[in-house]
Design a protein around this nucleic acid. Structure first.
Lengths: 270, 270
DNA sequence: TGTGATTGTCCGCTATACGGATATAATATC
DNA sequence: GATATTATATCCGTATAGCGGACAATCACA
């Protein structure tokens, strides 16, 4: 962050990464979180030498941070990571404030109610609840890219401009034929989302569902999460249902923002 | 694990821990998951030199694995750990099989229904759902020791004997005046739990709640999790309610075991 | 503005872990 | 079932990452 006072290499170039081993291990964990699989594929995916990879995996598995299927030799995240990671939501002030409102919104039949946060380049659900039968796999634990789905788009719409730039310049995966992948179109959509204050998408994540989402702000007018309602595609296509869901969703999001100290009215546009 | 073929130090003593840095970092993370706090306290708690600690914390925070309160300098688990850890439950076969049964059990008013797993020395909830108002903070994310609460006790009762020995020889914290802490008493209780097939506890975790739990087995007759119902203390003290809750709880646990390939009858005692 | 408690940084030495090479095991191919 | 191919496991000399003692900068409280 601060410019190096004495630069060995003259040019103030690289921030000189420290604790390489640790970083590698954590990258391996994160990579496996996204792409569980065999040792080789992971080594390849991360461009690591086999020996190094093997050592790392071995140690992480021994510690219970990774789990390994003995038949297929496929690695996935282990229980100890859940143990650690779960404490993040346990002490989460936004989630704490949100819970009662989310539970209230659960009364809506056929809707999954979620509180979603951005973690780097993905939207991750902190909480998920629904009235009757489950209609989607989108409970907590699943994560989605930011350019598809109303949750991702809302989080992106209110993110810092240079983050948006860097995100849109990366690979934009197409999950269904209805997923937007053109950066220009996405930017237009984000502007629209900002101006109307919410996002709605249909079938761009899973073919049979749609969703709508609205931002949650804190007292500093900064986005800290979003509320997302997921329902069957047909429900959202039905104007009456759609109106009903939208209204509850907006009210829920706003209630949470207010509980966090945000006050309506003051500059929605930064 | 395997005896070293060429032992520098002669005696085949230590298993020669590798990747020290990585292990340290993960221990730090785990320690902070349990005791969030200031840098010094963590360094002290883990017996690390200050410089080392500082480096480690700095790197982990920079990566988003730790979060740091700028006012108080207190560290806690960061969002990226949740991102990684959450994928553990997303691909969890037991949870997958259990969900429908857990949701069904939610119909019981005033009861929180959980699926709980053991991770080393703690009971961690994988899933948690409830009918109406929340009566306890025991959603996912919280973790409890094994010698208190019906969930912990069930998990302990069916654990490997030498694990039980090692657990009971450690520090047994007393959460309320009703928490058992005498190893001998606990052992007797565990035997009772094994013979009756479930555990019930009152006010030994939180003063105003009680809970009951039963084991979930897989096809190999091995415990893989437990189902736990938490309710207000008064509900469990009421014989009629208690019977009702117990019955549903046992049915739920058994249904899940069966869905995992377990068959009733065959040797409950190992 | 002083004193102790806490956090931040430097740098030389040493133990650590990297990675090429080689051995074994598992899986595909014919 | 024999051979080719791919995947996993282990060894070991060397370069280098990172440890930790010491010192510097802040903060917290009076």
């Amino acid at each position: 962050m601060a410019p190096r006072k004495k630069s060995q290499a003259g040019q103030g170039s690289e921030p000189a990464i420290q604790l390489k081993g640790v970083h590698r291990a954590l990258h391996v964990l994160e990579y496996i979180a996204i792409h569980p699989g065999r040792a080789i594929d992971i080594a390849e995916g991360l461009g690591l030498s086999w020996a190094t990879m093997h050592r790392t995996l071995q140690q992480l598995e021994q510690g219970g941070f990774l789990k390994r299927d003995l038949d297929t030799n496929r690695y996935s995240i282990g229980p100890r990571m859940w143990f650690i990671g779960a404490t993040y939501v346990a002490n989460h002030r936004v989630l704490e404030a949100a819970k009662t409102y989310l539970e209230e919104a659960r009364r809506l039949p056929g809707v999954t109610v979620q509180l979603v946060e951005r973690s780097r380049y993905e939207a991750v659900a902190l909480y998920s609840t629904h009235s009757d039968e489950e209609i989607t796999k989108a409970t907590y634990g699943y994560h989605f890219p930011l350019h598809v789905g109303s949750k991702g788009q809302v989080l992106l719409a209110y993110a810092e401009p240079n983050f948006v730039d860097s995100y849109l310049s990366g690979d934009l995966e197409q999950l269904t034929p209805y997923s937007l992948t053109d950066p220009k179109e996405i930017r237009e959509l984000l502007a629209k989302i900002r101006s109307q204050g919410y996002a709605v998408t249909l079938a761009d994540v899973q073919l049979f569902t749609g969703s709508m989402a609205a931002p949650v702000f804190d007292r500093g007018n900064k986005i800290v999460a979003c509320v997302c309602f997921v329902a069957k595609k047909s429900a959202i296509e039905n104007p009456k249902r759609r109106e009903e869901i939208l209204e509850t969703m907006l009210k829920t999001a706003q209630s949470i923002s207010i509980a966090l100290g945000w006050r309506p009215g003051q500059g929605k546009f930064i």
